[in-house]
């Protein structure tokens, strides 16, 4: 009879104490390696000037201060565009890019996954191939196209190209394949529902985790894009781009700015983690 070990949440088979110990050890080391830089950053952002220049630097802060954050905002505000404009730009660009990506992406995903028009497999293969190359490859010709379209230094250039991103679409399509049965769609069609009705009222509510994931990944992409070389008017730049420009003010303000930039995507991920992981359950590639 095999010896079973019982843990709080599950019965486990085939596990040795030594193995568990070793794995825990590796996990702790890795967690420290991953988290320590983040910790330095957070600590640095709250350090007053006097503590910044201690050698060797301390791993904690004795008299935490918000001065670095205040400095950061004063400096952004000192440029001739008020900070509210940067915040408006960020919200406007993120929302427009994300909404477009969601509407076009999920509609295409439904069409590829459930209508399966002749040629759908060609479109899907192109999408998968596009995941295999990074944007660096098409950077140059993209630039030429932007010039031809007259999009340099406009909002459009920060918004429309994002609508063509494929990772979110790929995830939504796979999630539909796995979680929405063809029989149900067929039944709705027989009842006289139009394809658009089925997409909006039947399928979309069923794939909520997937489109939430699409929203989050698109938002992260737009947020982290920061300053692109294609936009140079201050009035059109995002908060993130503005922060990057004043990053050199002082080491403390620099840390504060990175903390602000990273906190948004991390908080969003913490809130939506379970939905994202649920989506990823169908992220696999079939051959």
């Amino acid at each position: 009879m095999k010896k079973l070990r019982v843990r709080k949440h599950a019965v486990v088979l085939n596990r040795s104490v030594a193995g568990d110990g070793g794995i825990t050890f590796i996990l702790v080391i890795m967690a420290i390696f991953m988290f320590l830089p983040m910790w330095y950053l957070i600590v640095n952002s709250f350090k007053p000037l006097g503590e910044m220049n201690l050698t060797p630097p301390r791993f904690y802060v004795m008299k935490p201060t918000l001065k670095n954050y205040i400095d950061l905002f004063t400096n952004i505000n000192a440029t001739w565009v008020p900070i509210s404009r940067y915040i408006f730009n960020t919200i406007f660009i993120s929302v427009a890019a994300t909404v477009g990506c969601l509407v076009f992406g999920s509609m295409a995903a439904y069409s590829i996954s459930k209508i399966r028009f002749p040629g759908y497999n060609i479109v899907m293969n192109l999408i998968i191939y596009s995941l295999m190359i990074s944007s660096t490859v098409s950077g140059l010709t993209n630039f030429i196209i932007y010039v031809q379209l007259g999009w340099l230094n406009t909002y459009t250039i920060s918004i429309v190209p994002v609508w063509a991103s494929t990772l979110g679409l790929y995830l939504v399509k796979n999630f539909m394949d796995a979680n929405v049965s063809d029989e149900m769609i067929e039944a709705a069609r027989i009842d006289g529902a139009t394809e658009f009705f089925i997409y909006l009222r039947i399928v979309m509510p069923l794939v909520k985790p997937a489109w939430l994931t699409l929203i989050i990944t698109t938002f992260q992409q737009v947020w982290n894009a920061g300053a692109s070389g294609y936009v140079w008017s201050e009035q059109l730049k995002t908060f993130n781009a503005a922060i990057t420009q004043v990053i050199t003010v002082s080491a403390g303000a620099g840390s504060a700015s990175i903390v602000l930039m990273m906190s948004v995507p991390i908080i969003m991920f913490i809130i939506t983690q379970s939905q994202i992981v649920e989506t990823m359950a169908s992220s696999g590639m079939k051959d």
Binding site: F104, M107, Y110, S111, I115, F117, S138, V160, L169
Partner: peptide, 17 residues
Amino acid sequence: VGYLMVAPFLLMFLVFT
């Protein structure tokens, strides 16, 4: 209808990728 639904994305995808 399927072509219609995939068209907006496909257009962007063709132009930018």
